[in-house]
Structures are given as C-alpha cells and as structure tokens.
C-alpha cells in the first residue's frame, strides 16, 4: 500500500467559513441522495424517511451548544467506494467530558470515531468530505502530518490489542517511536500511565513479562494505559468493553469515570446502560446520520424525539 493519506480524495468542503455553533443551530442540507422525490419532512416517521435517503433535521439540545468543544465536526460526509456511510455530521465534542455514541449496528459510529484520528486513511476506498478540527487545528487539511496528528489522540479498540512485547514496552511504545531513550522518563511515564489505567498495582512486579500473558480485562486497561501515555488531547474508545466479561467491564468503566476530568473522551458503545452510566453527553446515530445529541440524562429519560426514545428503551435496534 502506498502512503494512504495522499491516496484519499478530499473534496472541497462546503461550509468552512461558518462556526460550528451556528451550524448546529440550523444545519444546511448537503449531499442528500435523492432530494427530488420528496422534501425534507421531519415528522413522526423519521426512520422511514432516513431509510428512503431523505434529509432529516438532527435534534441538538441547547445545553450542548454551551459547552467548550475540543473536537468539532462540520458537514462531514464519508463514502466507502460508491456507498455513503456518513451524512452531514455536525457535532462538537465537549472538552473534559465523556461523550457516548450509540445506535444500531452499521449506523456509522465506529466509522465516525475512526475518522477522528484518520484511521480510515488505511482503507483505500474511503473518500471523505467536510471538516474536522481538533482544538481549532484542521484534521483533514492537506498539510497535516497524519503521524503528528495521531500522536495528539489516544485510541482504544474493540478487541484488546497489546503488542507482542513486555508490559513496560507496550506502555512506553508511543514514546519509543518518538525516539525517547531516557530510562528515567520512560519509567516515570510507564508508572503514571499504568496508575492512570488502574493497572499499576496488578502488574508492577512483572513489568518485563510479556503483555500477552495478561487477562483480557488487564490487556484492555493496558491498551488504555498505552493510549494515555502520550497525554493525548482526546481519548477515542471504540466499544472498549465489548470483548470483556462484566467484572472487567466494570473496572474499565470505573477507570473512565476516574480519568474523565483530565481527558476528553469520545466513546462508541452498544451497551445503553454503559452509555447512561459513564457518559455526560450522548449522541444517537442511525444509518449514517446523527439523530439526536444531548446530555445523557435527557437522552435517556426525556429525549426530544420519539425514535430516540424507542431506541433507548429497546423497542428497536
């Protein structure tokens, strides 16, 4: 594979001048599939309308707009080859908070998450359109160094993926690839990250053993430790507990609660209880569109849209 970032065909963004908050207040429809058949008709049957490819106005709660955003997404569209997977996403991820993305399988949550640190560059057929900004710096600008960009974010994947090396080397991997050789610095970072991931007490005596010898839950917390070792601006969690048993899940959730003040966290989850337990804001997505976005308590107890209500209460999805 040649360098992927250059292979991606970026199309010019439509609304680059506008601030995100204005966009959130009244989004402009862009790139709808077959706009000719029917006008946008926000009504009781939004899901059918979406399925037909019609534009549906996303519902963003007023509280969200008052937050300070670490990550801003504007008019974001994404195609896998000919198939469009994300439609006109306009969101802001509040700094220092936990933001959860929920929605049925294939709704584009993971895709959106992977767009944030440009992991989708690795896939040849992906094509995007729109803007993303991390603390005001464009992510998809032509001049952006993808490698430097990824160093500003940490990511944890669905399945624990520790590297085939020692626990210590796993944690300090982001520093190693930056060429850090100072042993004192590495050890300090290792301890801080492992403490941050609530794993220090369990592994401090076997730091130089193979990380693949850890249990699944420990491995996932190790991955979190690795993700926070470089002190990222945003932590991206892609269903971090889906491969773990309930006890390990509990530990990871506690961990997220503990570190949320320090880091801005964007988490994808299938588990609605989890979303309600750990997140401050929740975003409901469906078929590549953002449907409703608001404070978690409101989304789960008194959502503005009946579809959201149906989903969070388990009537569909």
């Amino acid at each position: 594979m040649p360098e992927l970032s250059s292979a991606i065909k970026k199309e010019p963004t439509v609304s680059s001048g506008k601030g995100l908050k204005e966009t959130l207040a009244g989004a402009v429809p862009v790139g709808t599939g077959n706009a000719g058949t029917a006008a946008a008709k926000p009504g009781p049957n939004r899901l059918d309308a979406i399925a037909k490819g019609q534009y549906v106005e996303p519902e963003v709660h007023k509280t969200v707009a008052g937050e300070n955003f670490v990550l801003e997404v504007e008019q974001f569209n994404l195609w896998y080859g000919e198939r469009q997977a994300l439609f006109d996403i306009n969101i802001g991820v509040p700094a220092g908070k936990v933001t959860a993305m929920i929605g049925p399988s294939g709704c584009g949550k993971s895709t959106l998450l992977r767009c944030v640190n440009r992991m989708n560059d690795l896939i040849d057929i992906v094509r995007i359109q729109g803007t993303m900004r991390l603390n005001g710096d464009s992510i998809y600008d032509r001049r952006v160094d993808v490698i430097e960009l990824r160093k500003r974010m940490g990511m944890v994947f669905q399945k624990p993926n520790p590297f085939p090396m020692s626990i210590f080397e796993n944690v300090v991997y982001p520093l190693r690839i930056d060429g850090e050789r100072n042993k004192a610095v590495l050890e300090e970072v290792c301890e801080r990250s492992l403490r941050g991931a609530a794993l220090w007490e369990e592994v401090k005596d076997r730091l130089h053993q193979n990380a693949l010898g850890l249990s699944g839950g420990q491995q996932q917390r190790l991955c979190i430790a690795r993700a926070i070792a470089a002190e990222p601006e945003v932590l991206l969690l892609d269903e971090p507990c889906s491969a773990l048993d309930p006890i390990a899940t509990g530990k990871v959730e506690d961990l997220i609660q503990e570190i949320k003040g320090e880091y801005s966290i964007l988490i994808v989850t299938h588990n609605m209880q989890q979303a309600s337990r750990i997140s401050d804001y929740t975003m409901f997505m469906y078929l590549g569109r953002m449907i409703e976005y608001g404070p978690t308590a409101e989304i789960f107890t008194r959502p503005h849209l009946s579809e959201t209500n149906a989903y969070v209460t388990g009537r569909f999805g």
């Binding site: 992991m119 940490g154 994947f157 590297f163 991997y173 690839i177 690795r226 993700a227």
Partner: peptide, 13 residues
C-alpha cells in the same frame, strides 16, 4: 488490529 494499534499510537508505517 495490531497494526492499527500501532498507527493509533502515532507510529509511521
């Protein structure tokens, strides 16, 4: 997943 984990840490190819 291992490759992705490494890229996510900011490693080059």
């Amino acid at each position: 997943s291992m490759r992705e984990g490494s890229y996510a840490c900011g490693a080059s190819k």
